[in-house]
Write a protein that binds this DNA or RNA. Sequence first.
DNA 1: TCTGCCATGTAAGTTGTTACATGATTAT
DNA 2: ATAATCATGTAACAACTTACATGGCAGA
Lengths: 178, 178
Amino acid sequence: MALAHAILASLVECPCSGYDLAKRFDGSVGFFWVASHQQIYRELPKLEELGWIESEAIAQFPRPDKKLYYITELGKQQLREWIDKPCEPTLIKDDLLVKIFAGYVVNSEKILEQIEYHEKAHRERLLVYKQIEQQYFQLPIEQMPESEKFRYLTLLNGINYETYWLAWCKQAIELLEK
Amino acid sequence: MALAHAILASLVECPCSGYDLAKRFDGSVGFFWVASHQQIYRELPKLEELGWIESEAIAQFPRPDKKLYYITELGKQQLREWIDKPCEPTLIKDDLLVKIFAGYVVNSEKILEQIEYHEKAHRERLLVYKQIEQQYFQLPIEQMPESEKFRYLTLLNGINYETYWLAWCKQAIELLEK
DNA sequence: TCTGCCATGTAAGTTGTTACATGATTAT
DNA sequence: ATAATCATGTAACAACTTACATGGCAGA
């Protein structure tokens, strides 16, 4: 139930609506856990029933009301317990690699095109992450508040991830062009 | 439908039974696409119905019969078309990073323990991959047959993946110990 | 006028996980 | 004896994707 806990992790920072959650899952939280608005809207009533979150209708006339969700004490406790429970490293699961594996059944050029496309996408994403780093994480580590450190670590992971893919794409192109 | 295509990618190499497929998805193919035996057994009749694969019962008395699956021409064509169709890079989706993101709500030591556990797991996996590299991919790239090149690329990706995680774990431990 | 943003959902279908179920053979 | 391997599945549930559905407001 990691989606549930990802929602809790986001709500513990700051209460917000389903819509806002969906946006966060398209930005910061989304850098390591993607969820569509459909998933989120379906999950919220479940979490409310469990008593992990509660909601409050906020009138904002003439705009439609929004439901403000916030985490409960029980929810925080659940989040803490989940964080403390060990988990296994995530395994790679990647379409492109399946394609590469069977790449010899098609024209090499088509494969190369795809790798080049991925290379571009990863380069762009890396740039975005580096810009975020420049903008929000300028303080030296020693002066960073605790919660900032954790956020920074997730960003660093993203930077390392994109760097690894970028490097692999270059290797792959080089190897296939031989 | 990447599971379907991952199965095709495996069968195009060599026909085999559901059981054998499950084993491959626990080894070579499993390095970039994991699937349980339940998933595989459920998928096989579907693929047969589509005409992408066919099966033959092999008697092996006194052992129980096994169904040998092989890819059809239509299946190969489907695989080629799928490979040529562009796809988007896979986004990170990782429990540990959700935990890190909300890491400030628990004791840092617990988080450190988990990162250390992951570090160990990644180091071990990296070692396995490097041993495979030493054993099966000794030829210089120029002399590698085409299909070997593609297999090698998937292995290289695995090596880069584990290396990136390992490096991040080290960074994370260092940063959190400050 | 049209695009984008705010705001919330339902429905159908696919994919993935966990648990259950059986039964023979082979190696220790 | 008993554990591991060969061999194949079903059932229930959880998670995820894709498409459908609505309607107002703000800015170019």
